[in-house]
Computed example of a mutant assay.
Amino acid sequence: MKKNVIQLSLAIALGSFLMVSCDKDDDDTIDMEQQDEQVKLFASNNSNGNITVYDMASGETSTLTTTSTAAEGIYYDDDTDEIIQASRSSNQLNAFANISTFLVDATLTVSISSSADLESPRDIAVNDDFIVVADNADADGNADTPDGRLFVYTRSNGEITLRNIVTTDFALWGIEMVENDLYAVVDKTNELAVFTDFTATNTTNTTISASKRIAIEGIVRTHGLAYDDGTMILTDVGDAASDSDGAFHIISNFDSKFNGVANGEIMAVANNQIRVSGASTFLGNPVSAEYDADSKMVFIAEAANGGGRVLAFSNADAGGDIAPSVNNSLASASSLYFYSN
Rank of each mutant, 00 (worst) to 15 (best):
V287Q: 07
R122S: 02
A312Q: 03
D228N: 10
D239C: 07
D144I: 05
T206A: 14
D105Q: 02
S252G: 10
E302C: 01
A312K: 01
T204A: 14
P121I: 05
D135W: 06
V126Y: 11
S156Q: 06
R275I: 13
S113R: 10
T65Q: 04
G306N: 11
N327I: 08
T168H: 04
A143D: 14
F96R: 08
R309E: 08
N305S: 13
L8G: 11
H249W: 08
L18P: 03
I300P: 02
K3S: 10
N50A: 12
T167L: 09
I250G: 00
V276P: 01
S280W: 08
S252E: 12
I124T: 07
M297P: 05
E179C: 06
L311I: 03
S115G: 15
L182Q: 09
T161W: 00
I175G: 06
D294R: 10
I165W: 03
P146K: 07
A289N: 07
D169R: 06
S44L: 08
T281Y: 04
D78A: 12
N94H: 13
R163G: 03
V237P: 04
A184W: 09
N253L: 09
D229Y: 14
S334Y: 01
L64T: 08
S295V: 03
L18A: 13
A11K: 12
D28S: 12
L330Y: 08
D138K: 06
I83D: 01
C22W: 00
N180E: 14
V5T: 12
N46D: 14
S256W: 07
D236K: 02
A139S: 07
N94P: 02
A301S: 05
D129Y: 06
V39F: 06
I30E: 07
N328S: 15
A333M: 00
T281L: 09
G230K: 09
K24C: 06
I6C: 09
V237N: 01
I216Y: 04
L283G: 05
A210P: 01
I30P: 00
Q35V: 15
R149H: 00
L192Q: 01
A316N: 06
S288L: 01
A95W: 09
F254T: 00
L192I: 14
V186N: 05
D236I: 03
E265W: 06
S115P: 05
R213T: 13
Q35G: 06
N180Q: 12
T61C: 05
R213Y: 02
A116G: 04
M177D: 13
L311A: 02
G224I: 00
E302Y: 00
A279V: 14
G308D: 02
D128I: 03
G308H: 02
A318Q: 15
N315S: 15
N205R: 14
A318T: 14
E82W: 11
D228Y: 06
V298L: 00
N50F: 01
N205T: 13
E191I: 04
A241G: 12
K188Q: 15
D28K: 12
G319A: 07
T203P: 03
L8P: 07
S244L: 08
S47Y: 11
V287Y: 10
A57F: 07
A303Q: 14
S211T: 10
M267N: 00
F258Y: 15
A289C: 14
I124Q: 09
G174F: 03
